[in-house]
Structures are given as structure tokens and as C-alpha cells.
């Protein structure tokens, strides 16, 4: 207990702060490579949140998939396109301000609508084991077997599709 908060609460606070900070940096940094790296940091913070929520498997898969594969792909494309300049064209100030206002309004709406959520049925929760690989695997391969197979087909389609799109046309 530090200053009346438990360690978990402290961790939650720090991770939330960091993930929001890094999230903001993704949007505001001029250099796309920096953006990618900040987004990776954001993903690490979110993985930390998953660990706090006892979703170990998801946390690691999140890192492997997002940080290990998806963001590397982004880095690849940015580096290959040679977009890593700081002087990329910016939107006009007006459209930026409008974007900010729109985002703020959306936030207001969301916060307002979520305000009543204290009334949600809250079940006290002990040390849940649902995030463990075994339990998750059981659910995944019994209840969600069909979507799982569909997802594999989706991935295969994406694989073929991206190769077909990205391939240089042979003349």
C-alpha cells in the first residue's frame, strides 16, 4: 500500500498514463518512424494491462503479433518507401483544430454515455484462470471452433491477396 493505493492500482495508473502519453506521441510526432516506435511502446503498455487483467496468454500473443509482426511490417514499409522525413506535408491548422474539436466531442459523448456504467452488474472476481492457455484453448476449440477456422481462411486469403497486390507486374 503506497499512499492508500495498492500496487495493482499504482501499476494501472502508471500504465494508463504511459499508454495515453505514447498514444498521443503516435499522433503528434512528425517522423513516421518515431510514430511506429511510440505505437510499439503503447502496445507494450496495453500488454501490461492485459497482464494486470490476468490475461497472460493474450498479453504475450499481443506482443508477438502486434509488436513482433504487424509493427515490423509498418517499419518495413516506411523504411522502404523512404518516408522517414520530418517535413511531410501537414494538414492545415483549421482542419487540425476541427479534428481536435470533433475528437473532444466524441470523448464527451463516450464519457457521458459510460457514466452510468457503475450500475452494471459487477461480480467480485478472485484470481481467475480464464486467461490461461488451457482454458482459453478449450473455449477456442469448442465453442468458437467455426470462427477459428474462418479466421484461418481469412488469414490465408490475406496472405495470397497481399502477395498478389504487392507483386510487381511481370510484363
Amino acid at each position: 500500500m503506497l499512499l492508500g493505493y495498492t500496487i495493482t492500482q499504482w501499476l494501472f495508473g502508471i500504465l494508463s498514463f504511459l499508454s495515453i502519453m505514447f498514444g498521443l506521441m503516435v499522433v503528434f510526432s512528425r517522423n513516421p518512424v518515431n510514430s511506429v516506435l511510440y505505437l510499439v511502446l503503447t502496445f507494450f503498455c496495453i500488454a501490461g494491462h492485459y497482464l494486470l487483467l490476468n490475461a497472460q496468454f493474450l498479453a504475450v500473443v499481443h506482443i508477438v503479433v502486434y509488436a513482433g509482426a504487424i509493427m515490423v511490417l509498418f517499419l518495413f514499409v516506411i523504411m522502404l518507401m523512404d518516408l522517414n522525413h520530418d517535413n511531410e506535408p501537414q494538414k492545415t491548422w483549421i482542419s487540425k483544430i476541427i479534428a481536435g474539436i470533433a475528437g473532444g466531442m466524441l470523448l464527451c459523448v463516450l464519457v457521458g454515455s459510460l457514466k452510468g456504467s457503475e450500475q452494471l452488474g459487477i461480480s467480485q472476481y478472485g484470481s481467475s484462470q480464464i486467461g490461461m492457455v488451457k482454458n482459453l484453448g478449450k473455449v477456442l476449440f469448442s465453442e468458437f471452433l467455426f470462427p477459428f477456422e474462418i479466421a484461418s481462411i481469412l488469414l490465408l486469403a490475406a496472405l495470397v491477396g497481399s502477395i498478389m497486390i504487392g507483386k510487381k507486374e511481370i510484363k
Binding site: V40, Q56, V60, A67, G68, V72, L75, M79, V133
Partner: peptide, 21 residues
């Protein structure tokens, strides 16, 4: 940890960043 192998893969996949950066 009961996800030791996944942990290994996760860490290794993060190692790519060091080289790329």
C-alpha cells in the same frame, strides 16, 4: 511461467526492433 515458450517467442520478436532501429 506457464507460457514460457510464448515468452521466448515474444522476446525474440521484440529483438528484431533493436536491429531495425
Amino acid at each position: 511461467i506457464n507460457i514460457g515458450i510464448l515468452y521466448l517467442f515474444g522476446v525474440v520478436s521484440v529483438g528484431v526492433y533493436g536491429i531495425m532501429i
